[in-house]
Design a protein around this nucleic acid. Structure first.
Length: 272
DNA sequence: AGCGGAACCTGTCGGC
DNA sequence: TGCCGACAGGTTCCGC
C-alpha cells in the first residue's frame, strides 16, 4: 500500500499531533504485528514513554521516545495509523492501541497483518532500516550518484527502482509513474541508461515524489490518512492501473506486464 | 547478479 | 447464488 509519499503524509500528520503525548496504556489485539517480540515486552517498553518526534526513513515510520528508545513501524500493504478519540471496542482490523495521556488512542490497524511494529533502544538494532539505501529527496541523491549506481547494475529499471537497498521508498505505483515520466521502458537495463536519460530520470524521481506528497499520496483502494481522509494523487496517475486506456501523451493503449510478480503499467510507444 | 516462486494474511472483484 | 482464481500500494527467503 503505502510508498514514500503516503508514509510521508502519515508522518507529517502524526508529527503535528503526537510529540509530547505520553503512552498510558498499551493493548495488543493481534501479536503478529510485533514480530518475535512478546506483547508483554512490547507493553513494558512503551508504557510511560513520551513521543518526542515522528520521522520517516524509506517506507518506515520512526517514533522517537523519551527518555529513550524508538518505535519502528512498517505499514507494508495495508497498515494504517489513525488518532482516535476513546473507543468502546476495537474494530476487526485493529491490531494495537496506544492510549495517550490526552485521552486519545494511536490506533495501528492492518487488514492483511503484514505490517510490523518494532521497539528498539537504538535504531542500529533494526535490520530493515540498516539495509536501506539513499533517500531520493535528500542531497545524497544526486545525478552523479544515480549514474554511477545505474552503471553497475544490469537489472531491469523497474526492478532497480523498487530495490530499497539502492533508493529507499519507491514502490510499484511510483516506479511505474517515474518510468513513464522519464520515457524509459521498465525493462531497460539499468546500465544502458544514457547520461542525458539519467539526468531526466533524476529530475522525474524528485518531481513525481514531490507532487505526490503535495497531494497527500495516492489512494487506490484503502490508503487513508491519519484523519481517514484520502490522498488525491490517484487523479494524476498517468499509467498505473490504466491498462488499455490511452496514453495521455500519445494515445497508444497503456500495456500491463508482469515483472517480479508485480504488475507494471507503461506506454509501449513513449517508453523505450 | 538476477530471476522465478513461494510465503506471510485477508479481502474484493470478475468470470463462469 | 456460489465457487474459484486472480489480484492487491511490500518484503524476505530459497533455489537455480
Amino acid at each position: 500500500m503505502p510508498e514514500l509519499p503516503e508514509v510521508e503524509t502519515i508522518v507529517r500528520e502524526l508529527a503535528a499531533r503526537l510529540p509530547g503525548r505520553r503512552v498510558t496504556k498499551v493493548q495488543v489485539f493481534r501479536r503478529d504485528a510485533l514480530g518475535k517480540a512478546t506483547p508483554r515486552a512490547f507493553r513494558a517498553g512503551l508504557m510511560g514513554r513520551t513521543f518526542a518526534a515522528v520521522r520517516r526513513r524509506g517506507k518506515f515510520l520512526l517514533f522517537d521516545l523519551i527518555p529513550a528508545g524508538h518505535l519502528v513501524a512498517h505499514l507494508r500493504m495495508t497498515g494504517k495509523f489513525t488518532l482516535s478519540p476513546p473507543l468502546a471496542a476495537p474494530d476487526p482490523h485493529h491490531r494495537v492501541w496506544l492510549h495517550l495521556d490526552d485521552g486519545g488512542i494511536l490506533v495501528f490497524q492492518d487488514l492483511r497483518c503484514f505490517g510490523t511494529l518494532e521497539l528498539v533502544e537504538r535504531l542500529e538494532e533494526c535490520r530493515g532500516l540498516a539495509r536501506l539505501g539513499t533517500e531520493p529527496l535528500s542531497p545524497a541523491f544526486s545525478v552523479a550518484w544515480l549514474g554511477e549506481r545505474l552503471s553497475r547494475s544490469r537489472a531491469p529499471l523497474k526492478h532497480w527502482l523498487m530495490d530499497q537497498t539502492r533508493i529507499a521508498g519507491l514502490g510499484n505505483i511510483y516506479a511505474c509513474e517515474i518510468l513513464f515520466g522519464a520515457g524509459l521502458s521498465p525493462r531497460r537495463r539499468a546500465d544502458r541508461v544514457t547520461g542525458a536519460q539519467t539526468g531526466l530520470l533524476w529530475k522525474v524521481v524528485r518531481k513525481v515524489l514531490g507532487q505526490a506528497i503535495r497531494k497527500n499520496g495516492t489512494t487506490i483502494s484503502d490508503f487513508r490518512r491519519v484523519d481517514e481522509k484520502r490522498g488525491e494523487f490517484q487523479r494524476f496517475l498517468k499509467v498505473y492501473g490504466r491498462e488499455g486506456e490511452p496514453c495521455p501523451a500519445c494515445g497508444t493503449a497503456v500495456r500491463r506486464i508482469r515483472q517480479q510478480q508485480r504488475s507494471t503499467f507503461y506506454c509501449p510507444a513513449c517508453q523505450a
